[in-house]
Design a protein around this nucleic acid. Structure first.
Lengths: 332, 332
DNA sequence: TTGAAAGCGCTAACAT
DNA sequence: ATGTTAGCGCTTTCAA
């Protein structure tokens, strides 16, 4: 990575380092136009590309923002990432992306801290019990002037946040279904350590209880398509096809719900003919799916943008709350 | 972004800067264990986090790899990104991600060059006619020691590449369909400037021609779900529902194919009852889709990994060719 | 084995 | 308005 340096440009243009810096890399002081011209020409002919590392060192700010997601191939996270990216680019910031597959959030945060990102956005599924080392790392990062924004819940003191009303979504969705006349329910959820999974489940039970109903079954699997598939098969195994017929199955998220529908279908049960299924998020690929999945919409890209906005804003740390919107389609 | 510096650690430990550097941030020279211990303790109590920018400046290598995609929310690209990320992490590299929405690849590359990424992976849809400024920027980047890897086609001299056999896939898929007895075809494709779109289309026509067949229609729309939907509606408008019935519709990629199927469905035409549809890529969310989509599988995550592998490998630039595998499902 | 010191490329006081 | 120069935090050669 050798490259043309500023001083080479300065020499070529016959000006000082400082002048070259001023014309090439913004400054409030504007050198005379004829000299600026000379510098620009020199830069052009030499092929100068500013060294962001050196600038970062000198300016003590990197223009980097870090995003931690669980799985970038999951439409939930990739939609959020798209929003973050868009907002970051509007500010000419670069995005450092880490996909953690769940475990090594700590590594990712440490790497971001080392790279002195100006902000870190945590979209990774928050575990209910947060690794104290992760907490310590983030806290230190904040103490050093870094801004952190959490998506989902506001689980870090001093951090900005875009909170998602998972519990309300679970309750609202279930409630709507009950009012639509449904009485027989089951829940397929993700690991209870995932806060969002746990909250959606809690909302589900809260609505059920309020209506004097009880769930006929609950299964827990991975918070992904495969998990949904397995949960569906597990439900069938546990209850038998006859009992599953007529059930309204609330599933922890859309990706998992699609997997569950596939699982039921492979067992010969069709949604919405034999049973009903609903999910959460309203991920973009739902659009092409048939039957249309009843779900609770969270505007994922906007959530990403909002998180980036908080991360990049210079005023006080904000917490923004997002409430889902129930979208009724054919599946339930 | 103030933070504890190495010299603070060195002072605290009562050793020189050099020694502290050697124990904390790897080196072939290993200080005595008892002194290393002291340094590590000092770093721990002070909360030292190495400054990657400073290290980059001193070492003249950043440990960054840049990835340019078209749309990170598109499963094609997010799957590739997942593979790249995985491989990068195995090398403890950080991933700089840019989503370009098609146009500003140049900006993205310039930013990566400024950040002195060790490598740049271009997964963005390559336009047939490459912006000469983009070419110039990448060439300069290479001249300065940066490695670039292109995914799709090998369109940059001196760059590594994971090439995708789009033409072969188009021909193979169509050929298979013809041998299965299909005679009436249509093609729904993406913009002709996109190299992959154009190649798949070329393969389609090549196979058709060889069999003495001609396409009954061809439409071009956006290379995404929405484009597929519109193309389907357009096809219906052009040919009328009766002529569309019995058609085998080859679509430029899976995302677009799913959109097309939805478009047909909304018009009352069901796949595979009324017509057939096939796509390309075998994106992961196909798994839950019904009817199962006949497609040509390209191992997206592996392609990403391979690209990263070439980008990070120290030996000569490699070009790896990936041939698709036809996956026959219910849709065609 | 350990330390001193010269950079790495740039910015921003401070001088002129 | 332009130039000089002292860092920014770290690595690495060269001496000790």
């Amino acid at each position: 990575m050798s490259a043309v340096t500023l001083s080479q440009v300065a020499r070529e243009a016959g000006v000082s380092l400082a002048t070259a810096s001023r014309v090439l890399n913004g400054s409030d002081r504007r050198p005379a136009e004829h000299i600026a011209e000379r510098v620009r020409n020199a830069a052009e002919t030499l092929g100068y590309v500013a060294n962001a590392q050196a600038q970062a060192l000198a300016r003590s700010t990197t223009g980097l923002v870090g995003l931690v997601v669980h799985d970038i191939a999951d439409p939930y996270f990739s939609s959020i990432a798209k929003g973050v990216q868009r907002r970051a680019r509007a500010d000419r910031r670069q995005l450092l992306l880490a996909a953690t597959d769940g475990t090594d959030q700590l590594d990712a945060v440490a790497a971001f801290a080392a790279h002195r990102t100006d902000a870190i956005i945590m979209a990774g599924s928050r575990r209910r019990e947060i690794d104290p080392r992760l907490l310590a790392e983030l806290t230190r990062y904040q103490k050093n002037g870094g801004r952190v924004v959490t998506i989902g819940q506001a689980w870090l003191e001093g951090a900005g946040s875009v909170t998602i009303d998972n519990r309300g979504a679970g309750a609202g969705l279930t409630d709507m279904l009950i009012r639509a006349g449904r009485t027989r329910f089951a829940f397929l959820g993700g690991p209870e350590e995932l806060a969002s999974a746990a909250e959606r489940r809690a909302g589900f039970y809260w609505a059920l209880e309020r209506a004097g109903l009880t769930a006929e079954a609950e299964l827990t699997e991975g918070f992904n398509s495969q998990g949904g598939y397995e949960a569906a098969r597990g439900l069938l195994e546990r209850l038998g096809p006859d009992a599953v017929r007529g059930l309204t199955v609330v599933v922890g998220n859309d990706v998992m719900a699609l997997g569950a529908i596939a699982g039921f279908r492979h067992a010969g049960l069709l949604v919405p003919d034999d049973l009903w299924v609903a999910g959460f998020d309203d991920i973009p690929n739902l659009r092409d799916f048939s039957p249309g999945l009843t779900t609770v919409r969270f505007p994922l890209e906007q959530i990403g943008e909002a998180a980036a906005d908080i991360a990049l804003s210079h005023d006080e740390v904000r917490i923004q709350h997002v409430v889902g919107e129930i979208v009724r389609r054919e599946s339930a």
